[in-house]
């Protein structure tokens, strides 16, 4: 049986751990609200953008002069996987799930004889991916210094990706991130951004006049579309990260509480045992006289 002092120390240490996890949970809750607000604020732009692009893309898709960003390079030999994760850990399975999905996809592509290149955003994903796919690793975007993701960050990433596309480094680009469902559920998601895909728009489409011309607008908007997609993914990811951290820390706090209860019972039992022991000694001593 562990002695009383050890037990007391352990209870104290678990208690301070609980304090920390509780604080982290509350910080995550506050950050989550902010991240959700940001995601909310960005939604109208992304929705409108995709609606307009959907209409434009549908009419241009058939023509042979369609931009490469839309129609693709004509092959799908080289894939670029953009894996977006968090900069920090302690958020449950969040980083692991995204990395797992990316790994799965990478292995699938490799098995099919494709070339895979991997670009990571976020330190945790880099660490997880680099171990296994070190040879396929082409770059990393560091957002450690960024407190709140802004559109400029997304533009930077998009520029990097587009630059690689222009030099013919890859044919297909896919983003990996976690879609925010609610605080307890985040879905790791893969979304293809190059060649661009758009959801079918419903309802009758209006016939628009285009200025300067349909092609010029499409050529101007497609690169912006990539940035918009990246931005949406970054925001979803930020909200998901905080949600995952919040529920992970909630669990940790509860576990710590249970552990404290258990240790306290054990501590009380041992103390009682010690007292009983002493009493027996005294009584048997008295009887012996």
């Amino acid at each position: 049986m562990p002695n009383l002092k050890d037990l007391k120390n352990r209870i104290a240490s678990v208690k301070s751990t609980r304090k920390i996890t509780k604080a982290m949970q509350m910080v995550a809750a506050a950050k989550l609200r902010r991240a959700q607000d940001a995601a909310e604020a960005a939604r109208p732009y992304a929705e409108r953008f995709n609606a307009v692009m959907g209409g434009l893309a549908a009419s241009a898709a058939g023509s042979p002069s369609a931009p490469k960003l839309l129609s693709g390079t004509g092959s799908d030999q080289t894939h670029l996987l953009v894996v977006m994760t968090a900069e920090r850990g302690l958020c449950g399975g969040f980083n692991g799930n995204i990395a797992k999905l990316a790994r799965q996809k990478a292995n699938e592509l490799l098995a099919a004889g494709k070339t895979v290149k991997i670009l990571t955003v976020g330190k945790k994903g880099r660490d997880a991916i680099k171990r296994e796919f070190g040879d396929h690793f082409v770059g990393h975007v560091d957002l450690t210094e960024v407190k709140r993701v802004g559109y400029a960050d997304a533009q930077g990433i998009a520029k990097d990706v587009l630059g690689r596309f222009d030099t013919g480094e890859f044919d297909v680009a896919t983003l990996f991130f976690a879609r925010f469902e609610n605080v307890v559920t985040q879905h790791p998601t893969a979304r293809q951004v190059i060649p661009a895909t758009f959801e079918e728009t419903e309802g009758e489409s209006t016939l628009y006049d285009y200025e300067p011309s349909e092609e010029a607008i499409l050529a101007d908007l497609l690169p912006r579309g990539v940035a918009t997609q990246v931005f949406t993914a970054l925001l979803e990811n930020a909200a998901s990260e905080q949600g995952a951290r919040m529920s992970a820390m909630d669990n940790a706090t509860r576990n710590a509480g249970e552990m404290i209860d258990k240790l306290t019972i054990e501590f009380n039992r041992s103390r009682q045992a010690v007292i009983t022991n002493e009493l027996i000694e005294i009584i048997s001593g008295a009887e012996a006289l």
């Binding site: 307009v52 628009y208 006049d209 285009y210 200025e211 300067p212 010029a216 607008i217 101007d220």
Partner: peptide, 9 residues
């Protein structure tokens, strides 16, 4: 109001 539907950059 009643402008012709247009998209411009």
């Amino acid at each position: 109001a009643n402008h012709a539907p247009t998209i411009t950059t």
